[in-house]
Design a protein around this nucleic acid. Sequence first.
DNA 1: TTTTAAAAGTGTTATTTATACACTATCAAA
DNA 2: TTTGATAGTGTATAAATAACACTTTTAAAA
Lengths: 229, 229
Amino acid sequence: MLNNYNSEDKVLLAVDCIIFGFDKEGLKVLLVKRDFEPEKGKWSLIGGFLKKEENLDQAAIRILHHLTGLNNIYMEQLYAFSKVDRDPAERTISVAYYALIDIASHSRNLIRMNAAQWHNLSSAPKLIFDHDQMVSKAIARLERRAVSKPIGFELLPEKFTMKQLQRLYEAILNKKLDKRNFISKVNSLDILIKLDEKDMTVSRKGAYLFKFDKEKYDLKIEDGFNFKI
Amino acid sequence: MLNNYNSEDKVLLAVDCIIFGFDKEGLKVLLVKRDFEPEKGKWSLIGGFLKKEENLDQAAIRILHHLTGLNNIYMEQLYAFSKVDRDPAERTISVAYYALIDIASHSRNLIRMNAAQWHNLSSAPKLIFDHDQMVSKAIARLERRAVSKPIGFELLPEKFTMKQLQRLYEAILNKKLDKRNFISKVNSLDILIKLDEKDMTVSRKGAYLFKFDKEKYDLKIEDGFNFKI
DNA sequence: TTTTAAAAGTGTTATTTATACACTATCAAA
DNA sequence: TTTGATAGTGTATAAATAACACTTTTAAAA
């Protein structure tokens, strides 16, 4: 006999994606109106079911793409949620994934598909099942992650101002940061390239644009950043 | 129709427990010889399958108790492992849990059951499936966790010496710590009670015993420890 | 043309935290 | 009484973090 697993219970395995977005208004989360029962028409995370021939990472990518058109988003596994009655229709365990993306540079896809919508974190509607709990846990993880890696760089447009970067961190950490301390901390990491170009859309003076020095970043990532701000 | 989940794939959901133990020799991991196919007779983590009527935390507790006799162990969820062919017998996703316990204070149960054995981390045998990968991930998590919470206190006998506490941290972080710096760091946290009692078993001079001040600990945990050593 | 308003840019000091480092005390056993 | 093994203790330096305010720029308005 190859195995004696036959008497074991099988369950549905869902994957739910918590996609945080960042733009000038702050942190947002991407939600869809569920188009099947149960809870049809209610707001939900982007979710679907694992198929036998894929792993969880692949399922997350497929589901996200299918419901939003988003591609090439790196998601990180968050947690497996398994309360017995979390889905009233059937015993389902859900593995949550999360990612943080720059809204502006992905909006075209989202608009085209028109299935998903951004909601401010503070004013998001109540979600189905345990999805609110998933979002809370993802926020907590994001905060912790933000201080150990310069997570923000992957979420901004290619060229960005210091102010934008600071706003991103303020949004993630949910507190005001001192401009001077923030800039000197970022500069001490030595992973930004200051461009000869200014963003003139916000102020009369204009703010220098920066881009992210991928090589230096990759070198540093090995021995671990300290990005405590 | 209550739901349209009918066409979705169902899978087996395993739970594997990585139990780290600590005694004077250092960090160990608890392993069992697998007594069913596939891979019968090979070393494995403590594992089993989720049942429909329980959640993952409950499954982990049940499985651990069933295979080792261990009770009242707080385990934390680590990660869901989902490579398609990770178990050659059947499509199985495994959610790993981990815990860290004091070997001495739990050894009676383990000896009685005699199913599980402690192995030094450095000399553990090769494990089945992706279990080695699970152990590596758990070690990495333990290290990170050790600096954000004084994790060690829950793993020592009720009364312990500073030396024991330091040894525990040295084992988790896998590096030597300076005695004076360690003690002053621990003292600055103000969560230990120094007892009027000495451990005379190790030295002629004897070392003062301490215990853990649960109340102060709980107060501190709210605004987060900084236990970076 | 001058004034104004709004954001950009820039350094220093004080405080806290982390690190490096070595000698004395105790006491049972030899 | 000597010895050996472990317990216990403090200081100085370096590094990181936190607190803090004024000047510059420039387009638009007066």
